[in-house]
């Protein structure tokens, strides 16, 4: 992928070529995290209620991550017209220098 002319569609995500492995890697990382916490930190040996008070608040991360990434993805869509090589951009007048590109 490195040594060829890239269109914007191809460079939209760098790890495209291993998208299928990302999910596996995330699950394996979570598994490692689980074992660190339960075995090394001995949380698995504590009273159930203590485990719950530590694990349940971490559920807040679900919405924390989802909402942030969702909005980040939305910014990418909003910026699309300003990006180099974007077809929409080429219909307009000559491109300005990048540092002033978004000034109104």
């Amino acid at each position: 992928m490195e040594h060829q002319q890239l269109s914007s569609a191809e460079i939209s995500f760098a790890p495209v070529h291993r998208d299928d492995t990302v999910g596996v890697i995330c699950i394996l990382s979570l598994a490692k995290a689980f074992y660190i916490v339960s075995i090394f930190m001995h949380l698995g040996d504590e009273v159930r209620n203590l485990i719950m008070t530590i694990v349940v608040p971490l559920l807040l991360f679900v919405w924390f991550i989802a909402a942030f990434l969702w909005d980040g993805d939305s910014w990418r869509n909003l910026r699309k017209d300003y990006n180099k090589g974007n077809p929409a951009k080429q219909e307009h007048a000559a491109p300005k220098p990048a540092s002033e590109g978004t000034l109104k």
Partner: peptide
């Protein structure tokens, strides 16, 4: 920070790719 032009000093800042909304989040 991203794409900022300071009118007082008439300079364009090199920062790019950041998002002010991220701070608000």
């Amino acid at each position: 920070l991203s794409d900022i032009f300071v009118s007082k000093t008439q300079t364009a800042l090199p920062n790019e790719g950041g998002s002010a909304i991220l701070y608000q989040h």
